[in-house]
């Protein structure tokens, strides 16, 4: 499985994502700079966390309009799996690849801690190693993770199995405690929690590793 990590100016979890992908796939991912109009053919694209372009506008709004994202959108629409974590999730909603928006946390504070997640969908490309209904532990670190969409959209997401993860308790005010969302086709996942930070016991656990292994199992 060949993967790429997109790097925007201000991305800061790009190395962590690359480390996780290399640990699981055995191959160093391609690091793709935001100005690249084109990049090598890959099986998997990751949009890492951070503060792309400083996030001085709405989080992810600038990145969603960057050169590289035009290509990422094209590939996502063609079916290439795309994972957006934290700032990456914000970028995905800003591009319209995923529905909804991520607003400032209800507490108005940045929150960094381990959270319990309920696995809602265990059939997707990204989540097939988990068991629906079980709880996993993955950390969050964000200021704007309060997922919002209108009622019809939320109902549709739930109805179509597009909610991948739900917070076991409210941590940021997200509608229906939604922590991760899939697109309709199931090849794009956006999530606020950081699976790349939970890939070995020394870091507090390995629950995040299963996500990458799930992708690896499907894509080989």
């Amino acid at each position: 499985m060949k993967s790429a990590v997109i790097v925007f100016p201000g991305s800061n979890c790009d190395r962590d994502m690359a480390v996780a992908l290399e640990k699981v796939t055995g191959k160093k991912p391609e690091m793709v700079w935001h100005q690249s109009a084109d990049f090598e053919k890959v099986d998997f694209i990751a949009l890492p966390g951070g503060f792309s372009y400083g996030d001085y506008l709405r989080c992810g709004a600038m990145s969603a309009r960057s050169t590289v994202m035009k290509e990422v959108i094209k590939r996502a629409e063609a079916g290439v799996p795309v994972l957006g974590v934290c700032n990456g999730f914000q970028v995905l909603t800003e591009t319209g690849l995923l529905p909804g928006a991520l607003m400032r946390n209800a507490s108005l504070h940045f929150v960094c801690r381990d959270v319990e997640l309920e696995v809602v969908n265990d059939a997707s490309l990204f989540t097939n190693g988990y068991t629906a209904g079980s709880n996993i532990t993955i950390p969050v670190a964000h200021h704007d993770g309060n997922y919002y969409a209108d009622k019809e959209t939320l109902d549709a997401l739930e109805g179509e199995g597009q909610v991948a993860f739900r917070y076991a308790e409210d941590i940021n005010g997200a509608q229906r405690r939604i922590a991760g969302v899939l697109n309709k086709k199931g090849n794009v996942l956006g999530m606020m929690p950081h699976p790349e930070r939970m890939i070995e016991p020394a870091l507090g656990g390995s629950d995040g590793r299963i996500l990458f292994e799930s992708v690896m199992n499907r894509l080989g």
Binding site: C13, R15, D16, V19, A20, V111, C112, R113, P139, L203
Partner: peptide
């Protein structure tokens, strides 16, 4: 205080805030 600080980014924090000393690989 420290839950408002990202104390895990860079993926090497093996002893988080709250202990005697922080430990970073």
């Amino acid at each position: 205080i420290w839950s408002q600080y990202d104390h895990m980014v860079m993926g090497d924090t093996i002893q988080r805030p709250g202990g005697d000393a922080a430990v970073v690989r």
